[in-house]
Lab assay of single mutants.
Amino acid sequence: TTFEIRVGDLRITLHNADEEEIRWAEEALRRGIHADEILRTLEERRR
């Protein structure tokens, strides 16, 4: 599944994310964390 998060002009697309990952990514985007860093962190958490 694919889920797109939008916060203002910012956007990130997550693939195969669970609800916790989606909530975490949305909050991180709101705090101004760059999408590349969010994706990198999620990848590390999945390992």
Results as ranks from 00 to 15, higher is better:
Thr1Val: 10
Thr2Glu: 15
Thr2Tyr: 15
Phe3Val: 15
Phe3Gln: 15
Glu4Pro: 15
Glu4Thr: 02
Glu4Cys: 07
Ile5Pro: 15
Ile5Asn: 01
Arg6Val: 15
Arg6Thr: 15
Val7Trp: 12
Val7Thr: 02
Asp9Trp: 01
Leu10Tyr: 10
Leu10Thr: 13
Leu10Glu: 14
Arg11Cys: 14
Arg11Gly: 06
Ile12Lys: 01
Thr13Arg: 03
Thr13Ser: 04
Leu14Gly: 01
Leu14Gln: 00
His15Leu: 04
His15Thr: 12
His15Asp: 05
His15Ile: 08
His15Tyr: 14
His15Met: 05
Asn16Asp: 08
Asn16Ala: 06
Asn16Trp: 05
Ala17Pro: 14
Ala17His: 03
Ala17Ile: 05
Ala17Cys: 04
Ala17Gln: 02
Asp18Val: 12
Asp18Asn: 13
Asp18Lys: 09
Glu19Lys: 10
Glu19Thr: 10
Glu19Asn: 13
Glu19Leu: 11
Glu20Gly: 12
Glu20Ser: 12
Glu21Pro: 01
Glu21Cys: 13
Glu21Phe: 13
Ile22His: 03
Ile22Gly: 04
Ile22Glu: 03
Ile22Pro: 00
Arg23Asp: 05
Arg23Ile: 10
Trp24Asp: 02
Ala25Pro: 00
Ala25Val: 13
Glu26Lys: 10
Glu26Gly: 12
Glu26Leu: 11
Glu27Arg: 08
Glu27Phe: 03
Glu27Ile: 07
Glu27His: 10
Glu27Leu: 06
Glu27Ala: 11
Ala28Phe: 06
Ala28Thr: 05
Ala28Pro: 00
Leu29Tyr: 03
Leu29Met: 08
Arg30Thr: 10
Arg31Ser: 14
Gly32Cys: 13
Gly32Pro: 01
Gly32Thr: 02
Gly32Met: 05
Ile33Tyr: 08
Ile33Gln: 07
His34Cys: 10
His34Phe: 13
His34Ala: 12
His34Gln: 13
Ala35Tyr: 05
Ala35Trp: 02
Ala35Arg: 04
Ala35Thr: 10
Asp36His: 11
Asp36Gln: 09
Asp36Ala: 08
Glu37Tyr: 07
Glu37Pro: 02
Glu37Gly: 05
Glu37Thr: 11
Glu37Asn: 09
Glu37Val: 12
Ile38Gln: 00
Ile38Phe: 06
Leu39Met: 08
Leu39Ser: 03
Arg40Gly: 08
Arg40Asn: 12
Thr41Gly: 11
Leu42Met: 08
Leu42Gln: 02
Glu43Asp: 14
Glu43Gln: 07
Glu43His: 08
Glu43Pro: 03
Glu43Asn: 10
Glu44Trp: 04
Glu44Ser: 09
Glu44Leu: 09
Glu44Arg: 07
Arg45Gln: 10
Arg45Asp: 05
Arg45Tyr: 08
Arg46Asn: 07
Arg46Ile: 07
Arg46Ala: 07
Arg47Ile: 11
Arg47Gln: 12
Arg47Pro: 08
Arg47Tyr: 07
